[in-house]
Nucleic acid binder design. Structure first.
Lengths: 132, 132
DNA sequence: GTAGACCTTCCAGTGCGCTGGAAGGTCAAG
DNA sequence: CTTGACCTTCCAGCGCACTGGAAGGTCTAC
């Protein structure tokens, strides 16, 4: 698979794929005789893992760390676990924060739903957002 | 209250507070006769809202938009609501993503917990992180 | 044999959210 | 009257995650 195909399979731009390689979240791929990057099918899974990890708030550096630990397959279990546990509690904290935000947002949405639209048009104070 | 006190009350650096003012997430404060910024006590709440909103993944621009809608108190209920609803579903999507990540992370942590530590020290493949 | 889609490298720029440092003003305590 | 903590503005730089563009090579189809 060439970079363009990997890009369209995953929705990640070729530029970004090269950038990921440079920063270490993707391994250096093989090359065709013409110099084009050649990817194995499992690159799709790896790239999707990267995007999901990003969506979960991990930085590229952190993702690279996790994947390099796996790729090296060295005696890093202890560090790996400490790292993973630290991230797990980060993620849990982020979830808690987001749930607080969700609560606030739905209160605001509810409030805006219940308002008489007529009140909105005559320069009354918009009541949807509570005093902060 | 001067900027230093607001900073120590909230844990946000004075530099950052000025920066927030510049970008519109904090209103332009009054000034003392000597030119120092003068903050009302409710600035603490506002600043804390900003930090919580940030922790929930909103950008400063988005936070500014929400707070400006409230500050202007104009006929923006409809837009406000659309905006809030869009954000609510963003936040819900982020929560879902984080929960997927939490699942993956705890599987990895569990796996690393169950491993025989002896296996980690002799260059065996670290099994904590599943193939990606 | 040429057009067009694809690939390569390299370097520069962008947007976000700060952060540092220079140069100077204000004020209370010793 | 000076020291030191605090404040002011302004401008520059940084880390992150891309993104754009130039200049050129490769391959297929017509």
């Amino acid at each position: 698979m060439r970079i363009g195909e990997l890009a369209s399979e995953t929705g990640v731009a070729p530029k970004t794929i090269r950038f990921y390689e440079e920063t270490g979240v993707l391994p250096v791929p093989q090359r065709d005789t013409n110099g084009y990057r050649k990817y194995a099918p499992d690159s799709i899974d790896r790239l999707e893992f990267v995007r999901q990890a990003q969506a979960a708030g991990l930085t590229l550096k952190e993702i690279a760390t996790i994947l390099e630990m796996r790729d090296r397959g060295e005696a890093t279990c202890h560090h790996t676990r400490a790292f993973l546990e630290a991230h797990l509690s980060d993620v849990e904290e982020q979830i808690a924060e987001l749930e607080r935000m969700r609560g606030r947002l739905s209160v605001m949405v509810e409030r805006s739903r219940d308002l008489d639209p007529a009140e909105c048009t005559d320069r009354n104070r918009c009541q949807a957002i509570p005093a902060v």
